[in-house]
Design a protein around this nucleic acid. Sequence first.
DNA 1: ACTAAGATTAGTACACTGTACGATGTCCGT
DNA 2: ACGGACATCGTACAGTGTACTAATCTTAGT
Lengths: 241, 241
Amino acid sequence: MSVRWTIVKPFERVRRPVSGKKKRQVAPDAGLSKQRVVIEAIRIADREGVHALSMRRLAGALGAGAMSLYYYVANKEELLDAMIDIVFEEIELPPEETDWQSAMRRRSVSARQVLARHPWAIGLMESRTSPGPAHLRHREAVTACLRRAGFPVLMATHANWLLDVYVYGFALQEACLPFDTADEFADMAEDVYLPQLPPDEFPYLNESAAALVAAGYDPAEEFIFGLDLILAALEPLRASA
Amino acid sequence: MSVRWTIVKPFERVRRPVSGKKKRQVAPDAGLSKQRVVIEAIRIADREGVHALSMRRLAGALGAGAMSLYYYVANKEELLDAMIDIVFEEIELPPEETDWQSAMRRRSVSARQVLARHPWAIGLMESRTSPGPAHLRHREAVTACLRRAGFPVLMATHANWLLDVYVYGFALQEACLPFDTADEFADMAEDVYLPQLPPDEFPYLNESAAALVAAGYDPAEEFIFGLDLILAALEPLRASA
DNA sequence: ACTAAGATTAGTACACTGTACGATGTCCGT
DNA sequence: ACGGACATCGTACAGTGTACTAATCTTAGT
């Protein structure tokens, strides 16, 4: 099988180390590496969606042959795993110097921003089960923060799970929205959404859509609303030492 | 393009209506229909995952040729949309005769069960933005329930959004878990999870994993914990008429 | 400086995918 | 009996992931 590959293959190899004694000026980006491959894959997925990310397309963007990628990545699955873990690296860890609520707010807001930047990552999480190292580091930091804030072990687990559910769920819902800003939403609602909703069949949806258009809709505010609600509800569940 | 298709194609056609005057005993399930196609697609996705759902595979399972499916479905995208909408049909609507919290609990629990039965649906939601009819009916019913419970328009929207975030987020997280029952979790944790976590690097994760193994982990209970927390936190935000 | 070992890239091939096209048969209203 | 709409089919094409093989390029040991 591909056992030989996964054993022998170097996972982080800086092709062409400092000692560049010969010419090798074909191109400054000629050297591949798992880093470069995964980064470029993320760039493509961001711009054109995961469906547009094929090995040939990726290799082309890197100026390489399709099969060259398989030196750095065992298969496409592993590539996707690596992409997700890089996304996790982008998320801010909860700062240690503040109270737990501020820390959680900080990292949650960061996570939302990152996931909004890489919407494909959410859809990818289902289907791939094993968390990467960055994911684990993140979980550890969050759990630590909650434990130090005085949550009992099991309650910290509950809180951790709940907050993650909120962050990922929000990102998932947000990725479903066909607009990004409040203005776009207003246009969208009036041109596409509302005409599809007969007022006699969907009175309440019409009402709420109209109210939303009037009030303006900002995902960031919506996110904070639910997040603060959850944080406040968790507060009494910790044993404030 | 495929305009002719989408206009002419019948969306619900009971092939071979009652008047079966000639023989036609080739097989009782020989007649296709959009219903049958989508249902079988869901069955395949449930058993083998979305990645295993190809048009040829689906056609094979229905005893038909690959291209025959395109009479009932414009393309694979539309098939996936239809699958998702059937999933939404399976979710219980909030009952009208009880208080809002019970109603929301009822439909949320139902949604979790349905999404746990069809894990592929969660990953599919991102990427397809326009809600189907069943999805809309569901949203309308939930909004109605919240409005009647006394939530102001915008607050009802917030609550609706928050609850959906929780339900879908939970389903997403649950789909990531490589186990289904508490026993499986215990095995998994001891055999796979814990050995990957050096205690000096991940002290808190080790602690919580151990506590979870000892206490037993039940997704259904975990779901209720967060759900009730959110419902309780929403309660004071409605104007009890 | 030369060579052998290894790391890295590329080429070709195969089994699969979604689906456009055109050719069939089969039904119903005339 | 006939014309058209409906339903299904086989075939074809471009694109996918990747196994296998061969070529090249880098480096180490002499």
